[in-house]
Simulated scan of single mutants.
Amino acid sequence: MTMTFDAVSAYDAAFAGKATHVVDHVGRAQPFEVQQWTSAPDWVDRVLFIEPCVAATIDIGCGPGRLVGELNTRGIPSMGIDISTEAVRQTRIRGALALHRDVFGTIPGEGRWKNALLADGNLGIGGDPVRLLARLRDVVAPGGRIIAEVAADGAGFVRERRRLRVEGRLSAHFEWAVVGLDAVAGLAGQADLRVVDTSSVGGRHTATMIRTAS
């Protein structure tokens, strides 16, 4: 039987408000926290992602745009990209710039962004954090930073295949990864990046990386 419900369509449905769960490689399900991403940034978002960004910022996998929308409100040059057309639509409704774009495709301003954000576990996109970080190394400017949300210390590095379950209907599998604080420095090094700071606030964690060479 051919699977017709692709993962991108599942994300579109989820962001449109349909009841959605993330199903991991062993069948465990947890709610897809759409409300968290469609609401305004909370104080943890501000401390970890918004306040550190005082120059041009690109949000990778921006979702409905809570971060890039707030950066735009603060007058920070910013742009979000996402593979979900619904996410891009909602980001634009917030008055922010967003493009329907894959991070591995062409990105406007490539090599000139001062900050690149990987919030909400988006370091896991594609299941290959080294490839993703190496890509962002080319997206940011010399001296630019990548701020990535990671799992707690001890989570290690796990690759898995996930699906979305939208109102009882399963999507096709897609590759994802989980990276803990204990694993991020090693993966960053493989992408010619160096972790220069880590932060833990409100039960969430980030690692800030820069290029190891120009």
Rank of each mutant, 00 (worst) to 15 (best):
R131K: 10
A151H: 06
H21F: 15
A183Q: 12
I107E: 04
F157A: 04
Q30D: 12
D102P: 03
G69D: 06
G109H: 05
H173D: 15
E86I: 14
V22T: 15
V47N: 09
G124K: 13
R74T: 01
A207E: 07
A191S: 07
G105K: 05
G95L: 13
T91Y: 00
T198P: 06
L193V: 07
A191Q: 08
E33Q: 08
R94G: 09
D6P: 02
R137H: 14
P31T: 06
H25K: 07
R163C: 05
T206F: 12
S200M: 10
D24I: 02
G156Y: 04
I146P: 10
A116R: 01
M1H: 02
A148R: 08
A13V: 11
D153T: 09
V140D: 04
D6S: 10
R161P: 00
C62I: 04
F157M: 09
L193H: 01
S78V: 01
A7S: 14
H100P: 05
P129W: 02
E175W: 06
C53L: 08
M209A: 01
T206G: 03
S84D: 13
V54R: 15
G95K: 10
D59K: 08
P41Q: 03
T208A: 10
L132D: 04
G154P: 13
I81N: 00
A16H: 06
V158M: 14
I58P: 01
A14P: 13
G121L: 03
D102R: 13
T106H: 09
E110P: 09
R28G: 11
Q35M: 11
R94S: 11
R211I: 00
A14E: 11
L71W: 09
T206S: 04
F32R: 11
R46M: 12
D82N: 10
S199C: 13
G65F: 04
K114N: 14
R131W: 11
T106N: 14
L48A: 05
G65S: 07
G80I: 09
E175V: 04
R204I: 01
A134Q: 13
D192A: 08
D128F: 00
H205A: 02
A207K: 05
A98V: 09
G124H: 13
E175T: 11
G202I: 05
M1S: 06
N115I: 05
D82E: 11
I58C: 03
L164P: 07
S199P: 00
V44H: 11
G69I: 08
S84F: 07
L164H: 11
V68R: 01
L132S: 00
P64E: 13
A7V: 14
T38L: 11
V179L: 11
F15H: 14
D82R: 01
E167T: 07
T85P: 05
M1E: 03
T91E: 12
G186F: 12
A152R: 13
P142F: 02
G75D: 10
L117R: 01
V44R: 12
T212D: 10
G202Q: 13
L48M: 05
P41G: 02
I76G: 03
L117Q: 00
T38E: 10
A185H: 12
A119Q: 02
